[in-house]
C-alpha cells in the first residue's frame, strides 16, 4: 500500500511516500497511524497529534475510523491552507 505524507508531515518523516505491506490486523486508519508511528522517530513526531492531521483514502477525505482494507493509497497531511 502506498502511504503519502505532505507538507510538515513529509518534512518530519523525511520523505513523501513509502510502499508498505500493511499487517492484516490493521483495521482502521487510526490503527495504521499508530503502526506507522513505530517506524521512526520522525514518523512518531509527524503522527503524534492526530487532532491536527487530516487523512485521505484513495484521494478522498475520510476520518480516522475509515477502513484501511482495499485502499490503494492513504495520505496523511496537516489541515489544508490553499486559496
Amino acid at each position: 500500500m502506498l502511504i503519502l505524507y505532505f507538507a510538515s508531515l513529509r518534512e518530519r518523516v523525511g520523505y513523501g511516500e513509502e510502499t508498505l505491506d500493511v499487517p492484516t490486523d490493521i483495521v482502521t486508519i487510526a490503527d495504521l497511524a499508530r503502526w506507522l508511528s513505530t517506524r521512526s522517530e520522525g514518523h512518531s513526531e509527524a503522527l503524534a497529534n492526530t487532532a491536527a492531521i487530516r487523512v485521505a483514502r484513495d484521494q478522498v477525505h475520510v476520518d480516522f475510523d475509515a477502513p484501511v482494507e482495499g485502499a490503494r493509497e492513504i495520505a496523511f497531511f496537516p489541515p489544508v491552507t490553499g486559496g
Binding site: H61, A75, V80, T81, G82
Partner: peptide, 26 residues
Amino acid sequence: MDYLKTRAPFWKKESHRNTAGGWVEA
C-alpha cells in the same frame, strides 16, 4: 472559495527576509 480553502489539498510555506518562515497554519 470557502470550500476550496478547507478541502483542496494545498499547503503554503512562507519564507521571510528577516524572521523565521514556515508552514502557514489553517
